[in-house]
């Protein structure tokens, strides 16, 4: 009897281990070399140029890392090229040069939508594949990639905030300004998600949305005032990259670490200290390296003449189930959000 229990236990444990192993494997990055189109691209030596807004910005340095890794791993001739300054005119000029060089595909993160759109028309007329990122309003493109839908990202921030708050208590939302489109969509989606999934959490009725003016100091002062006014308040959801860090400063000063919580968009290097000291439990973001790689993969697919149907798999983590934005035939949205915490904050390099 004892023996059988032992055997059963062993079996359960082994299964558990296998289980963990498989989840580890599932979390492992998808392999773009298994994508037919990418293999073909490497064989045919298609040239794919990625044009960021400006390469001195650490954000696009990180994107460059992603593109380079993709090139090293797959052998596809892809590279990032830029103008050194954020300048719409220079960026358009660079794209024109690429058209003249007759590259096979151009991937752009546009500085200015209008001027880029007319330049991209020339590229399309020349038979060059055009992929963009964060350019959903462009019309002369094959496809535009967005890391996520606004609804999805809002829900994701809420998951992080709820985890920190222990899924209970009163919270409110902070946006740069009430007129900011995406911030308010994220906040609305987060509130929706909370209502569905966290019954023990409630939105602060008297002040459901406050403004930070995209300024860390304002976020800090507003947080202090909220905490004073509403003793029951336990958390603030941030949207702008200054919100959660600003609130964290208030938490630190008022001695409310582990009693009051915040989560939201934030840059890793700028907030490493706050994350490591535990004032901030987590921040949310998307990884430009992944967006860069996903653009190149999609370019390979289009060059290969593949039909892009939802859900499209771009063989990049967070971009494996791309769906079309409602009412659009060119904008693809993924699930490319990431959580930044004390452990991975130093790994991103920006």
């Amino acid at each position: 009897m004892k023996k059988s229990i032992a055997v059963a236990l062993c079996a359960v444990m082994t299964m558990g281990m296998v289980g963990t192993c498989t989840t580890v494997f599932a979390a492992e990055e998808p392999d773009p070399t298994t994508d037919e189109a990418v293999v073909k691209a490497a064989e045919e030596e298609w040239e794919i140029a990625v044009v960021p807004k400006d390469s001195t910005n650490p954000w696009f340095v990180r994107m460059d890392t992603g593109v380079k890794e993709f090139a090293d791993k797959t052998g596809v001739n892809c590279y990032q090229i830029d103008t050194g300054t954020i300048d719409a005119t220079k960026q358009a000029q660079l794209v024109e040069d690429l058209i003249a060089q007759d590259v096979d595909a151009i991937c752009v993160v546009p500085v200015d939508m209008q001027s880029m759109d007319s330049t991209l028309k020339k590229a399309k007329d020349a038979g060059i594949v055009v992929i963009t990122h964060e350019g959903a309003d462009l019309t002369n493109v094959d496809y535009d990639i967005e890391a996520f839908s606004n609804e999805g990202y809002g829900a994701f921030i809420m998951q992080n905030l709820a985890e920190a708050m222990g899924e209970e208590g009163v919270y409110t939302t902070m946006v740069a300004s009430l007129t900011n489109g995406s911030h308010n969509e994220w906040a609305d989606a987060a509130v929706e998600y909370q209502k569905e999934h966290y019954p023990n959490m409630t939105l602060l009725e008297e002040n459901p949305r406050v403004e930070s003016d995209d300024n860390g100091d304002t976020a800090y002062n507003v947080a202090k005032e909220l905490i004073k006014t509403y003793p029951d308040l336990k958390g603030i959801m941030g949207t702008s990259s200054f919100d959660a860090p600003g609130v964290a400063r208030a938490i630190q000063e008022l001695g409310l670490v582990d009693k009051f919580f915040t989560s939201g968009t934030g840059m890793p290097a700028d907030n490493a200290e706050l994350l490591k000291s535990g004032v901030l439990k987590s921040l949310t973001l998307w990884d430009p390296a992944k967006s860069g790689a996903a653009m190149v993969d999609l370019a390979c697919k289009v060059l290969n003449g593949e039909e892009i149907a939802a859900p499209a798999n771009l063989y990049v983590d967070g971009y494996t189930e791309m769906n079309f934005r409602e009412g659009s035939e060119t904008v693809l949205e993924g699930q490319g959000w990431i959580t930044i915490d004390a452990e991975n904050v130093d790994d991103l390099g920006f």
Binding site: E206, N207, V210, E211, N221, E225, T229
Partner: peptide, 15 residues
């Protein structure tokens, strides 16, 4: 005034 809007209970829209 700037730091008393919430204490006063004035909605963000009107601050």
């Amino acid at each position: 005034v700037q730091n008393s809007m919430i204490l006063l209970g004035i909605p963000t829209t009107w601050s």
